[in-house]
Simulated assay, not measured.
Amino acid sequence: MLRRPFLYTALLAAPLYFASCSKDNDSSDSSKLEVRLIDAPGDFRAVVLDVRQIEVHTKEASSTEGWYTLPFQTQAINVMEYVNGKSALLTNTDFSPGTLTEVRLLLGPDNYVIGRDGQRYDLKTPSGQSSGVKLKLDNVTLRDRETYQLLLDFDVAKSIVERGNWKPNNDKKERYLLKPVIRVVAQDIRGGLRGTVTPTAALPQILAIRSSITVADTFSTSADAAGSFQLGGLPSGTYRVEFYPSTNAPSGQAAYKNIIRNNITVVNDQTTDIGQTALN
């Protein structure tokens, strides 16, 4: 049984249909669980997480029993590399059918960012909290001979908080706090959006906002060097897609614009191509 301190993360709402941990090595009556990590981008060159361990809980949240460790090799992951449809595979393992109630991501002390200035800034964890990220699930069940995917969407912009009183001549280790915000996406939510944005020099950022529900879900990514973007794991619905530049146009050129496209439909198991969008 594992008993470690942890911090609770803020979670964006999403339907959850997940898998439970295999409690033994008997594969005659088993399913598979795959855990992946993706990123909602932020204003950094790199964001490196020191991922040490992944655990799942098969009992009620109040129980200290039923925690199991997934097969995983400790690694440093630059989450900024996993946008635009890319994901980091953390583990893929056999599981016995059953219930999964929580997932916990354990982080080591060597988390840091590389800022736009090229400088490294260590990420501090707020006093009184550990670097364990605990994600609550809604008593989901793994069925025999099925494969499920847990997609952990790490929101860089919300997870890394700059201290308000920090100044450039202060200790670099004191600039940023790590307060992980992770959205969990179910394997059976497989809608998507893709397209292209110009000019690429604008370093375009993209928000997809599901406007067909009372409390809107927001998903984000950035365009790659060719101007292409892709968002996966989107629930079906009607979306407002917002495009905005993350830099200014060169002197003498027309200013870049923020663009909004409404009434974009996303359907499960399909990727909606919305074509090209120009920011000038």
Rank of each mutant, 00 (worst) to 15 (best):
K257D: 13
L106T: 06
L100M: 05
A202Y: 10
R240S: 08
I114K: 12
E102R: 09
S159K: 01
N84R: 04
G237F: 08
G191V: 11
N92V: 01
R194T: 01
D43H: 14
I259G: 05
A40S: 13
D43N: 15
A19D: 05
N170D: 15
D144L: 15
F18C: 12
A76W: 15
R183E: 02
L178C: 06
I54G: 03
Q119L: 14
L193C: 11
G192H: 13
A254P: 08
N262R: 13
I77W: 03
S246M: 13
A254R: 09
R194G: 01
G232S: 08
E55Y: 11
N111H: 11
T272A: 09
S28M: 12
P15K: 13
D39C: 15
A208Y: 09
K167D: 09
N111V: 05
V103Y: 00
E102L: 09
L123I: 12
S87L: 14
S87M: 06
F72T: 05
S87A: 14
H57S: 10
A14P: 11
T125V: 05
N258W: 00
F243T: 00
L100Y: 02
V35R: 06
S87W: 00
S211C: 11
L150G: 11
I77V: 07
V156S: 09
T214Y: 04
P97L: 14
I213N: 06
T93L: 10
V103A: 01
V35Q: 11
G237E: 11
D224S: 09
A254L: 04
Q73N: 09
A254Q: 14
L123M: 00
F243Y: 15
P235T: 01
A186E: 06
G252D: 05
V161A: 09
G132D: 05
F95Q: 12
R163G: 10
L178D: 08
A14Y: 12
G233M: 00
